[in-house]
Design a protein around this nucleic acid. Structure first.
Lengths: 207, 207
DNA sequence: AGAGGTTGTTAGTGAGCGTTAACGTATCCC
DNA sequence: GGGATACGTTAACGCTCACTAACAACCTCT
């Protein structure tokens, strides 16, 4: 709307630059471990200039966490709704969810880190909102998993989903940014691992 | 040694009380989010009284993280060395590692949280030491996994181990302390999931 | 040209917090 | 009894850091 910039690659606005750098710094040193001066320096302005774009440091974290949660949920819901006609197999649906989550975990590693690390630094209202979005996202997965493995009790399905999130979100521990042996291979490996875990949950005897 | 106390249940010394409460508080609100006054209050003394037991706040975190890493590594090495005669199957050995890690993840949830969350707050020397211990622990697992699945390339084995750690360490997300549907069942489920993931890593075609 | 909005700047303020100082008290040992 | 030691206390210091105030440069529109 307000930006009549070239429709090309959508030049990153100042706000977006700030959010991106803040995410990186928060992930590296923690919310309390990063000063506003550092965030400003990372985008070329210094210190209190940030307050032209955000009402405070908390607001940056809040916008980051709410944004992540909303995008994750929206992505999951989109993939499920694409299957509204029910023509896809439950396996394919679960694969789609896994693939989407892996894309996210590989492309936005700082955000993944923040997502379960700095949630407690939010104001009550924001924290509740993020938790709600997270819960809804989990429920999307649980529904698909239980569709695929009807014999799996609900609480086990939920615990399994949380555990698989832990597995997929391990990407920040896999070495520094470029150390991965190829994004495609890593994604494929994580996918296999996740499917293996779900399979073990749903078909215990196969172990 | 210095404590000639009753051999009974080993009455917790002040230092141990402090470490336990500090671990809980650090896990709940982050290292920088907790003040020394709070830690003191949690053990019945207030504020600077802590400095009779620790040279500083950093030292508490360092002792916690080094302690965790050492216990994890020692536990893993012990389980492997028990098999020095080689009479146990690789499967049983991997199961023993998984079981030990699960016990740890279920019994010391705050420490698990700290373990990968507050590492960067340590002084260089302590951080390097913890990283070294963590790396050695990973290598113990990698050796066992590659023994079980010789066809698995080393970097994939290592990534898989990290991912399974993420899976097992998801216990803090499984609801508040008492909400687990029975410790035994949770442990069994996590064990199945981990074995499923390893199996998928080692036998890709089975998927 | 000049008013107004946007986006910076630097200097300062006030609160929080880790740490130290100075001081009390109980216990142990001779 | 009387030091030494262990373990607390409260008061204060000093630094960091989020945030505000006051001011300046540029862009746009009439």
């Amino acid at each position: 709307m307000s930006t009549h910039a070239a429709a090309r690659v959508a030049a990153p606005t100042r706000r977006e630059q700030i959010l991106k750098e803040a995410a990186r710094l928060f992930a590296e040193r923690g919310f309390h471990g990063v000063g506003v001066d550092e965030i400003g320096a990372a985008v070329g302005i210094s210190g209190p200039g940030l307050y032209r774009h955000f009402p405070g440091k908390d607001a940056m974290l809040a916008e980051l966490l709410v944004g992540i949660s909303e995008r994750l949920l929206a992505g999951g819901q989109l993939r499920v709704s694409e299957d509204a006609s029910g023509d896809r197999s439950p396996e394919a649906l679960l694969d789609a969810l896994i693939e989407g989550h892996i894309d996210f975990a590989l492309d936005d590693r700082p955000l993944i880190t923040l997502h379960d690390r700095e949630l407690d630094r939010l104001r009550d209202t924001d924290r509740k909102r993020v938790r709600r979005l997270q819960r809804e996202y989990v429920e999307v997965w649980v529904a698909v998993v239980r569709d695929l493995y009807p014999a799996l009790p609900e609480h086990e399905a939920r615990a399994t989903v949380h555990a698989v999130f832990g597995l997929l979100n391990s990407t920040p521990h896999l070495g520094r940014p470029g150390a991965l042996p190829g994004r495609t291979d890593t994604a494929a490996l994580l996918h296999r691992l996740a499917r293996g875990a779900f399979g073990a949950a749903g078909e215990p005897k196969a172990v």
